[in-house]
Write a protein that binds this DNA or RNA. Structure first.
Length: 470
DNA sequence: TGTTGGTTCTG
DNA sequence: AGAACCAAC
């Protein structure tokens, strides 16, 4: 039997349900990745995502070649590309793992209908979440809007216990004559910018890279992992791998559970981390049920919010030149490494939305373009959370004080000094109190672009102006 | 997974 | 004076 497996957000061989089933049923198998050129702008890959995808596809090609298979690369309209392949190569069955963004759902539904009408078998599987969004409902059969009850229902859900599985040792043969684009022809690497040049210092994409990171996390970092405690402590750094499915979230969840049983002293830290994985599913859940939140406020009261268009302040924020050390450190970590510590994401987000009164969508787009782990569902949910416009959102009047946040989470100023080199020679106390940093650095470090107290009061006024309750 | 400014308690 | 607690934003 001739079959085709379509790789999407699942660039791995292990614990890949659709791939597993395709391998078991096929005598000859096409493995394909399609760069979808029909994607609307809200879902088009950002620069950092494209960089990561390039690296990840390269690794996947290598892994498949070692097993005597190959990865076919195409770009264009997936409907047309699949139709042509299926017809020309006499494919009987097509397999993929489901994804849940608005464009993916629309595209996949239409492709499935189309192929089925031509008597092609289409088999789709869950592969990118712990539990799929349509399999979780509250008691009144509605989607959850609040995380805590969602979380509780997850802990009781039978699907959470499903076991991961490995790829069979031998793959069906490939179609030797099929033409494929070269990886470079996909045009994923940034042109004329040296922005991504240092990313390889920090990241090794691909399934093997994911497992190396996981092992380091479990054997070392996790012992010191305290959620949000100290910014200079390690985080898991697994988010980009999860985004592209280089490790399955189900596998990760299980590895953690096993470690928790083996080492009970780690169980509370592990539960806290697993809870973060369930936040990731919660984001998919919200996006699946409320697809318009990609561009629209979940709470319509926010449609009247008096956002300010201020290009210079936005630019200062993106460049890490706001004059608030913790904000600037985070924004520069993002620019240099394609990553930012989660706690700092909240601080810089709050600063953009509340201190600068800039629409959360500008921040969302910047993160979307520069984060290697940019995930539509998580990014939208978290920005709406910060802005207060989301379903289960931070109350609008909860305004982070960047000084207090730095004092609490970076008391030794290690994080700030790592990412803001012009402050390295300034004493810690002056940095944490933001005491005349412009003068100390002879003007190298900028003055604060807004005064915290004034910005706070202005934000509270704005919130009152459209009477947003809680 | 907030901050502020007030009151009350404590030494 | 400073911690501890609390309501309001």
């Amino acid at each position: 039997m001739n079959a085709l497996f379509w790789f999407r957000d699942d660039l791995r061989l292990q614990d890949n349900p659709g791939l597993f089933k395709a391998i078991n049923q096929a005598d000859r198998l096409i493995l394909i990745y399609i760069l979808d050129e029909t994607t609307p702008s809200s879902e088009q890959l950002g620069g950092a995502s494209k960089w990561w995808l390039h690296q990840s596809l390269q690794k996947l090609q290598q892994d498949l070649e070692q097993k005597g298979q190959r990865l076919i690369l195409k770009k264009g309209n997936p409907t047309e590309i699949l139709n042509k392949l299926v017809h020309d190569q006499k494919i009987e069955s097509v397999f993929w793992n489901r994804s849940y963004t608005p464009h993916s759902i629309a595209r996949d539904t239409s492709i499935k209908t189309d192929l089925k009408s031509k008597n092609i078998n289409v088999h789709t599987f869950p592969g990118n979440v712990l539990i799929e969004p349509f399999n979780v409902k509250n008691k009144s059969e509605k989607p959850y809007l609040v995380f805590t009850p969602f979380y509780k229902s997850y802990l009781m859900h039978p699907f959470l216990g499903e076991e991961p599985f490995n790829i069979p040792p031998h793959l069906p043969q490939c179609f030797d004559t099929l033409s494929s684009l070269s990886l470079d022809a996909l045009g994923l690497l940034p042109q004329g910018l040296n922005w991504a040049d240092r990313f390889p210092d920090y990241w090794i994409a691909g399934e093997k890279g994911a497992w190396t990171r996981l092992h380091n996390f479990l054997s070392e970092d996790l012992q010191k992992y305290r959620l949000n405690q100290d910014l200079s402590q390690k985080t898991s750094l697994l988010s980009p791998y999860l985004r592209w499915g280089e490790i399955s979230v189900r596998r990760l969840y299980h590895e953690l559970t096993h470690l928790s049983i083996k080492t009970p002293s780690l169980s509370s830290v592990i539960s806290a981390f697993q809870r973060e994985l369930i936040w990731r599913d919660f984001a998919s859940h919200l996006l699946y049920h409320f697809p318009n939140t990609v561009t629209e406020n979940h709470k319509p009261q926010f449609n009247a919010f008096p956002w300010i268009q201020h290009d210079d302040y936005f630019k200062a924020w993106t460049k890490g030149k706001t004059g608030y050390p913790i904000v600037d450190a985070g924004m520069r970590q993002l620019w240099q490494t394609g990553f930012m510590h989660n706690r700092v994401r909240m601080i810089v987000g709050s600063f953009l939305v509340k201190h600068l009164l800039i629409d959360w969508r500008f921040g969302e787009r910047w993160f979307w373009d520069t984060l290697l782990d940019a995930d539509l569902a998580s990014n939208i949910m978290n920005w709406q959370w910060v802005a207060g416009s989301g379903a289960d959102a931070s109350p609008y009047f909860r305004i982070f004080n960047p000084l207090l946040q730095a004092q609490k989470f970076d008391p030794k100023v290690q994080y700030i000094k790592e990412w803001v080199p012009e402050l390295r020679d300034v004493n810690d106390k002056a940095i944490l109190e933001m005491d005349h940093l412009f003068e100390y650095t002879k003007g190298v470090y900028p003055r604060p672009i807004v005064k915290h107290e004034d910005a706070r009061n202005r934000a509270l006024l704005a919130y009152k102006s459209c009477r947003i309750s809680i």
